[in-house]
């Protein structure tokens, strides 16, 4: 009973808590791992040697180029109606303010629609977006496009309510996108509390003036690597089951949840298979992506390099939505393939995690799923994920060893069985 053996080893056996403990040493040793930073270089070196020490096969680094942006010194202060220090985190790829900073009245809006309705009020102002958190995918548009929409109506900077479902004065960062032909203005996220306070003041008719200083700087692209390790298949070694997470993180907290958890349960899958002396028919390949937070940069270059072998990619799996209590597997593929994966999920009955959900989510595996390769992502209880996402709160304190054990069990049973079945998944 291979599935049971994997579950027992991961949840109750000698591998219990290993993925959590490995992640804790890694996160405490390396810290946050922003694309282009020395910490990320150190993280890749660390993993290159750790995967070799774990006696995995074909451990190697695949060179890629990644963006290199640094936030520098930044702060914001409300000057009117009273002095108040605003909690900010500059957004990735933002430009700096002029050396003397920017002092301007704010225009607070709760949506792009309101901004467009009040466009004539925006000239020379700092636009503050106080958009409510709906869902990440919907609300992240304000982080991504807030500066461009504000610049289009003549604003001099944008401050965006953090894309977070809960806050204790914690700003959340992330990447943002300028648009060719639209002036570039400095942009940062602010805490939910500060966005709401300035909104209330404005609605009272109070004039709000803010001073913003940002030292952000974009450098030439940096060299980085996707980190790869394998258990080579016994019968069809050229066919691949890819399990992955991303090794880079934002320059806040420890990047333990995003995406240390996903990276380390993916490593755990290969370790568990190796510990049990198993060798599936197909190659089980671990990829730890670089440059994910800047838009799946490392993954795109990996895809370009390997797409010629796309017919040999059986399934691509990424865990990048937390490793809290697992609920099942999100899957993208044909109905026939879904039925097979549904059957595989029944093997997880001993831990009662057998559900399958629509559409796998994973920036780094999207390139393959778009070309018809079946894809899977770990579905977990993300009710608290956006409390900590891209914030200083993303630390090991957020992670739970038992939940990671269960996530690793799900991840390993699914990837091993697909790698060992007589036929590849239909596509």
């Amino acid at each position: 009973s291979i599935a049971k053996a994997i579950i027992d080893l991961a949840v109750h056996g000698k591998a219990q808590n290993r993925s959590y403990e490995r992640l804790a040493v890694f996160a405490d040793t390396i810290g946050p791992r922003l694309s282009g930073s020395k910490n990320l270089d150190a993280a890749i070196k660390y993993m290159f040697s750790a995967l070799q020490e774990d006696r995995l096969e074909n451990v190697h680094l695949e060179p890629v180029k990644v963006p290199h942006w640094e936030r520098g010194e930044e702060f914001a202060v409300m000057l009117e109606p009273r002095n108040h220090s605003i909690a900010i985190l500059g957004l990735g790829s933002s430009i700096a303010t002029p050396p003397e900073g920017i002092t301007a009245e704010v225009l607070v809006v709760t949506s792009f629609d309101e901004l467009h309705r009040r466009a004539q009020e925006a000239k020379g102002k700092i636009v503050v977006y106080n958009q409510p958190f709906i869902t990440y995918s919907e609300t992240v548009q304000y982080r991504s496009r807030g500066a461009v929409e504000a610049a289009k109506v003549g604003a001099v900077a944008s401050l965006i309510r953090s894309v977070a479902s809960f806050s204790i004065h914690s700003p959340h960062t992330g990447w943002q996108n300028y648009q060719p032909g639209v002036p570039q203005i400095p942009t940062a996220c602010i805490s939910v509390e500060d966005a709401e306070m300035m909104s209330r003041m404005s609605l009272q008719g109070t004039k709000v003036v803010v001073y913003l200083k940002m030292g952000a700087k974009t450098y030439p692209d940096s060299s980085s690597f996707n980190t790869v390790a394998e258990i080579v298949g016994s019968k069809y070694p050229e066919q691949i089951v890819l399990v992955s997470g991303h090794l880079d993180s934002w320059d806040v907290g420890q990047g333990a949840m995003d995406d240390g958890g996903g990276a380390f349960i993916s490593w755990e899958a290969l370790s568990l298979v190796k510990d049990l002396g198993l060798r599936p028919k197909r190659t089980l390949r671990l990829v730890l992506w670089t440059g994910e937070e800047q838009g799946g940069i490392g993954a795109e270059q990996y895809y370009q390099l390997h797409k010629k072998n796309i017919s040999n990619f059986d399934v691509v799996m990424e865990s990048d939505e937390g490793t809290f209590r697992p609920m099942g597997l999100a899957f993208t593929g044909t109905d026939e393939a879904r039925d097979i994966v549904k059957e595989i999920m029944t093997l997880l009955l001993p831990i009662n995690i057998t559900d399958i959900y629509d559409t796998a989510d994973g920036t780094d595996i999207d390139y393959w799923m778009r070309d018809g390769v079946p894809g899977a992502s770990l579905r977990d209880d993300i009710s608290k994920y956006f409390w900590f996402h891209h914030s200083h709160g993303d630390t090991m304190t957020v992670q739970d060893p038992n939940q990671m054990n269960l996530c690793a069990a799900v991840w390993t049973v699914v990837s091993y069985v697909i790698a060992d079945m007589k036929e590849m998944l239909p596509r």
């Binding site: 009973s1 291979i2 599935a3 049971k4 026939e336 039925d339 097979i340 059957e343 595989i344 029944t346 093997l347 009955l349 049973v413 069985v417 060992d420 079945m421 007589k422 036929e423």
Partner: peptide
């Protein structure tokens, strides 16, 4: 029906279910 790579007929879903059950 074409032969699959190890010379057998492609499996029915029932066959696949049985194969997967072998892992439990």
């Amino acid at each position: 029906k074409s032969l699959s790579r190890d010379g057998n007929y492609p499996k029915t879903f029932e066959d696949i279910k049985k194969e997967i059950a072998g892992y439990s």
